[in-house]
Structure formats: C-alpha cells, structure tokens
C-alpha cells in the first residue's frame, strides 16, 4: 500500500436519540492510500453510510462524532469548525450518493449546479467555470458536454445523472472520494460502465476511492481492499482476492455464501439466520454472536481485531478452512 492519504482511527459516531444512544459507528479504523480503491461492505444498518458521512463531517443531529481521528493527508479533520470543513468538502474530500435523482436539484440546470460547486472554492469567471464543468463532464463520459450544461437533471438518463453527480464531486480534483452506493440505483450494464470508468479515473487522477456498498459482488470487481462492517465495526479486512477466497469471520463467510453466484441453480439462496442487531445500547461482546454458528461463551467478551499481514479479523473463532471457492 502506498502512503495513506486518509487515515481513520477508532472513529466513533453515536446518535443520541430519546430512546438511548445508537452506536452507529463504534471504533472504526482503516486507511486508504492515494489512488487506492477500498470497498466498505455491510448490510443495511451496519454503519457504513454513517462512516462515510463522518469522514465528510456531515453527520446530522442527533448524531455526533464522539471520538477518534480522521486524517486527510496528515491533517486532522475531527474538531475542525464547520467553515474549515466546508473549505475542504468538495475541494479535497468529496462524496457521491446513491440516488442522483435525489441529490441533483431538479429545478436548476446542471450548468448552474456545477458553477455553484466551482464557485464554492474558486472565484472564476462564468466562462472559465463553464469550460471547467464541460471538461469534467467529458471526463466522466458525457458526450457534447458543453451543450448539455443548460439541461436539467430530468433530461438525463439515470446513468448520465449519476455521471453528472460524480463530475460535480470531481470538479476540484479531490484527494478522496467517498462513494455511497453510487451504482445501486442503476441498471446492471450501466453499473459496470460506471465502475470501470471510476476505476480508470482513480488510477488516472490519483484520487483515493472509498466505495461503500452492500453488494459484495460489485465491490469485489472494483476494489483492491475490502473492509467488512457489521454493527458499527469492521469485523474483517484484507485484500479483496484473499478475503473472498478465504474469509475468516463467520459473517463474511455467510455474506459470501448468500451471493447468488455461489448457489446451485434452482436452490434457495443461503441466508444468514436472524437480522442485524439494534445498535441501541448493544450488549457487550461480539454483536454477531446471536447469529453465529461458531459462537461460544468466550464471545460474551469483545473480540479484538487480530491482524496478520494485510489481513485482520475481529473474532475469537476465525474460520481456518476455505469455505468457498
């Protein structure tokens, strides 16, 4: 791994609701190198999106980053004021979301939206801003970009809309791009196109990519490293190929077995029994314990993250044998 551009250590983001404290992110640590693509996977409610928003400093109340550190190119982001963070957002660390229909403003032309994003960090003439917007749109694969600046989001197809959103995020050549399920709302064929383009862009510009997804299959084609999140924690991490071939955490193994590609035709898909636990005042110990076939009395204590080489797993009973091809 090259020198880390983003270093997250022991990040904790909790939501202080009336019912109690929801520990959506509870001690997450990872780092991403320049130009590297890291996949952050987990089920809904595992805290992966909140992790993304925490990196941006965009956690909505009643949520709050309680502790931990996020370093962007060596600079600590936690504790910066809203204005200091605003100056970084979009310029050095950017984010795209799942549904471009919801993120782009339906009543402003994309030219206007891109100009607003440009002028948030650079004071340029309208002409220069338009030229830059068109250039970035071309780079994400939008044909005749110059003439499309006057179009509204509804005049684009779903895939094109997401490309526009990605272009807005890339306007200032961010060092880190957090992508929160940006292809989930798209057709499979469009998904593949965008994934390829994103990979090329990351390689070309040196932008590090944190790709958040619930879809292990998609992430595995794109990312070089995988972080598996469960109940607000990273339970397994390592290079994609190695984790897929040889999952150590029973949860990762379960996720892999439930992929349609691994099932025999005509057979029911494998399901991990039970559901994701509530993160509202979780009991101590391994949060996966109630759903785990390997759980023992030991699991009532918190398992530490055991690392060996590039692999890491948070489990007292890591799997040794190959579960899946």
């Amino acid at each position: 791994m090259s020198t880390p551009i983003l270093e997250v250590s022991d990040l904790k983001t909790h939501f202080f609701t009336r019912a109690g404290v929801v520990k959506a992110v509870d001690g997450v640590s990872f780092s991403v190198g320049a130009g590297e693509i890291v996949g952050l996977v987990g089920e809904s409610g595992s805290g992966k999106s909140v992790t993304g928003f925490s990196l941006m400093g965009l956690v909505d109340p009643p949520g709050r980053i309680v502790s931990g550190s996020v370093k962007l190119d060596g600079e600590e982001l936690i504790g910066l004021s809203w204005d200091q963070l605003r100056a970084l957002r979009g310029a050095r660390i950017a984010m795209v979301f799942q549904d471009p229909m919801a993120t782009l403003n339906p009543v402003l032309t994309i030219g206007t939206q891109m100009r607003l994003a440009i002028s948030a960090h650079d004071k340029t003439s309208r002409r220069a801003a338009d030229a830059r917007a068109a250039e970035v749109l071309t780079r994400v694969g939008i044909p005749e970009a110059q003439s499309r600046l006057g179009s509204y989001p509804h005049e684009f197809s779903g895939g094109m809309r997401q490309r526009v959103a990605i272009a807005i995020a890339l306007l200032h050549g961010s060092q880190v791009l957090v992508a929160d399920e940006p292809t989930t709302a798209l057709d499979v064929s469009i998904q593949a196109q965008i994934l390829t383009e994103m990979r090329d862009l990351a390689a070309e510009t040196g932008t590090a990519l944190v790709w958040i997804s619930h879809d292990l299959a998609t992430v595995s084609t794109l990312a070089s490293r995988l972080l598996v999140m469960y109940a607000g924690r990273i339970v397994e991490q390592g290079p994609v190929a190695s984790v897929l071939r040889d999952p150590r955490h029973p949860y990762t193994a379960g996720l892999l077995r439930s992929l349609p590609a691994t099932a025999e035709p005509g057979q029911d898909l494998f399901q991990i029994p039970g559901t994701t636990p509530s993160l509202l005042d979780p009991p101590p110990g391994c949060p996966f314990r109630p759903r785990c076939a390997h759980a023992s009395d030991m699991c009532a204590a918190d398992p530490p993250l055991e690392t060996s080489g590039e692999r890491g797993v948070r489990c007292f009973h890591p799997l040794r044998e190959t579960v899946n091809a």
Binding site: R86, R89, A91, A102, N105, L116, A117, A169
Partner: peptide
C-alpha cells in the same frame, strides 16, 4: 433540508 439535495450540496462545499 432533510433531503439529499442539501446534503450533496454541502458535500460539494457550498456555503
């Protein structure tokens, strides 16, 4: 304010 449009605009660094 609760929608993604505002969140996305904030993520782009708009004041």
């Amino acid at each position: 304010m609760l929608g993604d449009t505002v969140k996305f605009a904030r993520a782009a660094g708009l004041s």
